[in-house]
Design a protein around this nucleic acid. Sequence first.
DNA 1: TCTAAAATACCTCTTTATAGGTACCACTTT
DNA 2: AAAGTGGTACCTATAAAGAGGTATTTTAGA
Lengths: 226, 226
Amino acid sequence: MRETILSETVLNETIPATILLIDDHPLLRKGVKQLIELDDELKVIAEASNAIDGIKMAKETEPDLILLDLNMPNINGIETLKMLRDEEVASRVIVFTVSDNEEDVVAALKAGADGYLLKDMEPEELLASLHQAALGKVVISDKLTTLLAQALQSGRSSNKSDISSLTPREKQIIKLIAGGLPNKLIARKLNITEGTVKVHVKHLLKKLHLRSRVEVAVWAVQEGLR
Amino acid sequence: MRETILSETVLNETIPATILLIDDHPLLRKGVKQLIELDDELKVIAEASNAIDGIKMAKETEPDLILLDLNMPNINGIETLKMLRDEEVASRVIVFTVSDNEEDVVAALKAGADGYLLKDMEPEELLASLHQAALGKVVISDKLTTLLAQALQSGRSSNKSDISSLTPREKQIIKLIAGGLPNKLIARKLNITEGTVKVHVKHLLKKLHLRSRVEVAVWAVQEGLR
DNA sequence: TCTAAAATACCTCTTTATAGGTACCACTTT
DNA sequence: AAAGTGGTACCTATAAAGAGGTATTTTAGA
């Protein structure tokens, strides 16, 4: 695949690592792309502004690295990551986001991310991290290492509240709880009986290891469920 | 201040609107700056990664526009905006953020923002909005207009939950509610009886025009009470 | 197609939460 | 001194929430 190179020492020839950007913010993509252009060992070969396009491009271009935003409309980053894995995309996926939330970090790594970098990092650090990532290393922003260590040592990685275990109905009810609705109104809204709502609440409390709907509401808000 | 221009029709001479970027993400700044460079009616003359530097630079450079991020460490965007106003900086301040949260939008505009743009907008739209802003127009992302209309018509701007009417004890209890504690545990923690906690809860519910502790918890979390 | 998971409904029982009232005390403002 | 505010306490009564169980129907996966 390597193209012919004119009048250049063959020994100095570097094959740039190819990168796909998936982020719904055009401006951010622009900034990252411009930064990466300064580095001849890295090359942005494709961009996408949503999960669907991103996955399509990943399959078409087979990049070495995928920089993936977490906070995207419709399909979020974690889901996108899982879909990429399902599609057997071989690229190394680096989550690139503003969220230094422990849940997000753990979820991303559990879902098989090969790195987790924060958008507020210095440009030089980002390039350095991408180099490492291209070499097969798992890269994590310095800020997060302490956080991760705590998460692991306190065993929270196994018993933390995990949205992935919830059924669609349960997620739906969580959002309504976070909206402050009592069971009776939730029932009316969903055209089911209050008793049934209680069953769902009971189940989701158990799954999330939470003690009350107040904790559910707080959790949901902090988790950014909408 | 206008520099000498060589061999150019004087009639076509445009004085670019000067812009100061305040955002803690270097990459985003990079992207925006690159975009603005394409437009010779706009010019980034300074950048800052935090509120303190931003305010200093605003006073030094007196830009026409300030693009201000909301989500910054230490001092957030709204506070920064207020500080700019206190310092009597004459620049038009455009909030530029990812948050399409109603509270944020309303808070920003109440604090005197001259615009509120979302980071996920298209580059062309951003440039167009900045042109409008430079002409003195208040620019709001299209996405937000519906939201704003609702906020105003439902009168939420005037009778929204206001923390200032709360007593210290009530604020304290709100934080504990948001921590998911039931009245009994709150009582233990504060060394008062559960009955007394109930009275406080009752009062604060009335003051905040909220219907349940769940709504209180959600409100507190979104309000960032800690 | 068979099966397991999900969603639904109804039951009882206990605990929490909310609303209303009265009352006392300390402190500040008028 | 009187009035107001904030914090405390106790009372009754109702509403809501949560835990336990059983059971039927749909839906989706193997």
